[in-house]
Design a protein around this nucleic acid. Structure first.
Lengths: 211, 211, 211, 211
DNA sequence: AATGAATGAGAGTTCATTCAT
DNA sequence: GATGAATGAACTCTCATTCAT
């Protein structure tokens, strides 16, 4: 990585942190520059515009996210295992890119109205297809409840996972895998006890962290 | 209701709609005024500032919300029934004040840093106590799973419900009670089938709409 | 005086008080209306504009002022007695119209640039001629010091008198005549003792208040 | 002096000129910017607000003024000489900072109500103590007339001197020292001739300009 | 006579952006 | 690579004024 690219990455990381904390609109480019130890004008040596900064933050994040997702989706897992793997992968992304995820969560609806951010809408579509497909397959195979409103369940799962970015802080007491397991146990089995439940064999297994 | 108060309510409703759609910061008072069919300056005959508009939107909403919540919390219900009633009440509030809820969801973190919006923080505290208490009681009584991480479950339930305001549109095909029932069935029983499940008696009953 | 004219006079008095206290520009017509117990718009039933309010305040004041001044100037007094009478008359005007005087003092320079307030400039001219003439006559007659820079002395006297409006409050411990006597003693005799001074016969006599 | 500080000084000087000519409230920042050859927004690169501009103008002026006054007050002069030196110093300040003095004269009453301008009130207090003390000392020592109402004389001297800023223009035919001499001769000896007056020895001497 | 609601011009201020140095 | 100074559009808000009632 060239030194220039390294600086760029630093700046993007700083900007993401500020955007996540204050919101895109409420964040001034001056504030970002302050945080990076330079003057507002100097940022324009590195980036075209404020917009192109979020753009790069979000697209970088989504590229990585889909690399992980596609690996899961192409692995030929069953519906339940797919759900478990997608959720776990999501919490890992929150762990690694929590600022980008928070921005994505808060601003994507607003930003996606602009052509430049068309990929947000596109990504949302892939998202929807992946989840809906998995859920429908699970219902068909009897792995998920027959009376499930899959569209509602899709929104439920989607929101449930990403909203965690609003409170999750990396380095806390729970690893992303731990949080994923807890979430999955609630979503898959519910918060009320299952009488016949033996525990171990129904609770989602820990997915090993990839190297 | 005096015509003046009626006009005020109309304007607040218009403003709430715009705030919810575009975000507080991204919304100009000109836009609100446009939508209300007047000039930007004219808004200031009715309100002190843009801030006092959101303030009134949010505090009105929270007052109504807590009226409903308190009724539930004071009813002496069991933990499971309390959760059901709170979730149902929440979806009703989303139905009635979907714009206010969306604003609350998106902006309260940011706004609550200002003293004027201290009641947001306060409300969040009451919220947390009500939910945590109910969950803990449920675990103690064996109504909820013993291995539940209640703090995590609290966040899960809280966010899961409110985030629905971001996609819920009143007058759609599902009534708030219907959506609440579906959500509750996922949260309480999970999305995987329960072998011994008799269905009817474990699925949350429809809570009758209050007159 | 018709009741309408009476109300008008009240409003003008109220307005003058506020203008004097806060300055013309800094005073909002709403503030005046508040003070008068009505709404801002209602003032426009009585007056054409904010400007016409000051206009009426100032022109009324100046008319009365010049009535008094002209009486003095036409009385055929000597220069010293003329100065004494003008100063005394001025302090009486400050006593009666202290608000108008304060406005005149603070705003006339600014207002007189507008054609509508041409009479302010005109009045200032008459003022200057009256004072300068009196001073020159006094110097010629040996009543005032021969080395006097009359233009400087004119400004000195003019400012010295009117500036008192900025701190004078009617009903205080000194009557206008008393203040006039003190001022005149400073201006005419200076603040250092005159060796041969017998006091009584050199201190300006109290001018009897007109009925 | 750095070029930046120099620019700042220029802008302050321009602003002071406009404030003095039109009054603080009546002056728009657009007008100041015009006069400075820039756009309104550009002023905010140099200053926080319109208020902070007057603030800097007034506080800079008062600092310099009190430097001069304190030198006089600490010099151990007699009361008459102190009055002469203070008046002379004042006219020099009017000469150097005529715009700031005019602003001080017109706006300080209004501005001093704000906490930020508390130093105006404070300065007025020091002013009062300095003048009153000197006058009282003079009366006690027999240098000033025994029948002097010192509070009245204080106001008289204070206002008389500063009001001159409203008409004084630097570079006119009279030097500040010349005007001070004339003023002092009126104030100390009065405008009527003193029979026994020897002239030279009682007229205030020209105070040499400090290097 | 007065109200209530609005107008519209313009105020102070913010901020993304530019560019010569 | 970064600075310092500026731009210009847009923003929130103020206020004198209007007018139907």
């Amino acid at each position: 990585m060239t030194p220039s690219a390294e600086r760029r990455r630093e700046l993007l990381s700083t900007a993401a942190e500020v955007f996540a904390a204050q919101g895109y609109n409420a964040t001034t480019v001056r504030r970002i520059a302050d945080e990076a130890g330079m003057l507002a004008g100097s940022l324009y040596y590195h980036f075209d515009s404020k917009e192109s900064i979020v753009d790069e933050i979000l697209s970088t994040f989504l590229n990585e996210l889909w690399a992980g997702y596609d690996e899961v989706l192409d692995a030929g897992l069953g519906p339940r295992e797919t759900v478990e793997a997608l959720v776990t992968e999501s919490f890992r992304e929150i762990d690694r890119h929590h600022a980008a995820v928070a921005i994505y969560q808060k601003e994507s609806k607003h930003l996606s109205t602009q052509p430049r951010f068309g990929y947000l809408t596109e990504s949302q579509g892939r998202f929807e297809r992946a989840w809906l497909g998995t859920l429908e397959r699970g219902v068909a195979e009897g792995v998920f409840r027959a009376d499930l409103d899959v569209r509602l369940a899709y929104r439920f799962l989607r929101d449930t996972v990403w909203i965690a970015a609003s409170w999750y802080r990396p380095g806390g007491q729970h690893s992303p895998e731990e949080i994923a397991r807890q979430y999955l146990s609630m979503v898959l089995d519910g918060i009320t006890p299952r009488e016949e439940q033996t525990g171990r064999d129904r609770t989602p297994q820990e997915t090993p962290r990839r190297p």
